[in-house]
Write a protein that binds this DNA or RNA. Structure first.
Length: 278
DNA sequence: TGAATTGTTATCGT
DNA sequence: AACGATAACAATTC
């Protein structure tokens, strides 16, 4: 489902066609998910020019010439598409009519997606943590986030208020790449484990972007990242590194996949290395 | 029919 | 009081 790499791919895909375009009309067919209200947003968007299209965490950010921003969150099944790409597109929840005659569709089978207009982008995104691909996300930064926390690594990685943009797939893939167990207490990692985790997060997200994201069932077409998954969705399949069957469990209500051999729990790692540190 | 999916919110416990 | 765990919730598909 769209996580940081998928959203980044969508942004890169639509940006060239949207930059400098004027919105002639915006219409919502599912007003419930438009904030602060479909009629208000339609009025505010009319005749605005799109000055930038970017990404913050899993939000698509359309910047407008009046300083306001339109945030689009795809949640589980949202996608952007052009009206002329499909004969009779299903699940169209909103659309933008542009000054060049093209029509951008927001399609969303499950209606979880959100469209939010704001005059204060900072306030609207204040709940979000650091961008994992930004310079700012240094080893020291991650160490600060982990420090003193008893929380398990997997739920921590999914917490958008700490690191923003990681979802279930890339959390599992990052933990595998780092050789860390999903249930490890975050605050107990040593220096080299923190470094590994930071590198792993950035590596899997960058790889996801290079692959144009991952195509999972019918929700998000186009990407190829699913072909190189190491653990996600590979329950009982042999680990690509050591051959051990990939294990699955439920963590914080999320399906979680890991290699029991490549990702031993912290206690086991410490026992093997013979010495403990914090 | 129930499981699965994401992120927010509410609630409860330490 | 901050932190963390848990559940409910939105809607739909398989």
């Amino acid at each position: 489902m769209p996580e940081l790499p998928e959203v980044e791919t969508v942004v890169r895909c639509v940006r060239p066609s949207l930059l400098g375009r004027r919105i002639a009309r915006f219409r919502s067919l599912w007003p419930r998910n438009v904030s602060p209200g479909a009629a208000i947003v339609a009025r505010r968007l009319r005749d605005r020019t799109i000055t930038d299209v970017s990404r913050r965490a899993k939000y698509i950010v359309m910047s407008l010439d009046d300083g306001a921003n339109l945030l689009v969150h795809l949640r589980m099944s949202g996608r952007l598409a052009w009206a002329d790409e499909t004969d009779r597109p299903e699940h169209v929840r909103a659309w933008w009519g542009l000054d060049d005659g093209r029509r951008l569709l927001f399609r969303d089978a499950r209606k979880f997606g959100r469209i939010l207009h704001t005059d204060d982008l900072g306030a609207a995104t204040a709940h979000l943590g650091v961008e994992p691909l930004a310079q700012e996300f240094s080893a020291a930064c991650l160490a600060r986030l982990l420090d003193g926390r008893a929380r398990q690594l997997k739920p921590l990685l999914l917490d958008q208020s700490l690191v923003a943009g990681i979802g279930n797939i890339y959390a599992d893939e990052a933990l595998f790449a780092a050789g860390l167990h999903p249930l490890d207490p975050a605050g107990r990692l040593d220096r080299s484990e923190v470094l590994r985790l930071r590198r792993a997060i950035r590596a899997v997200l960058r790889r996801g972007i290079r692959c144009n994201g991952a195509s999972i069932d019918w929700v998000y077409p186009g990407g190829t990242m699913q072909e190189v998954f190491r653990v996600y969705g590979r329950t009982d399949a042999p680990c690509r590194r050591c051959g051990t069957p990939i294990a699955a469990m439920r963590v914080a209500q999320r399906s979680t996949h890991f290699c029991p051999a490549c990702q031993p729990p912290l206690a086991v790692r410490r026992r093997r290395s013979g010495r403990k540190r914090v």
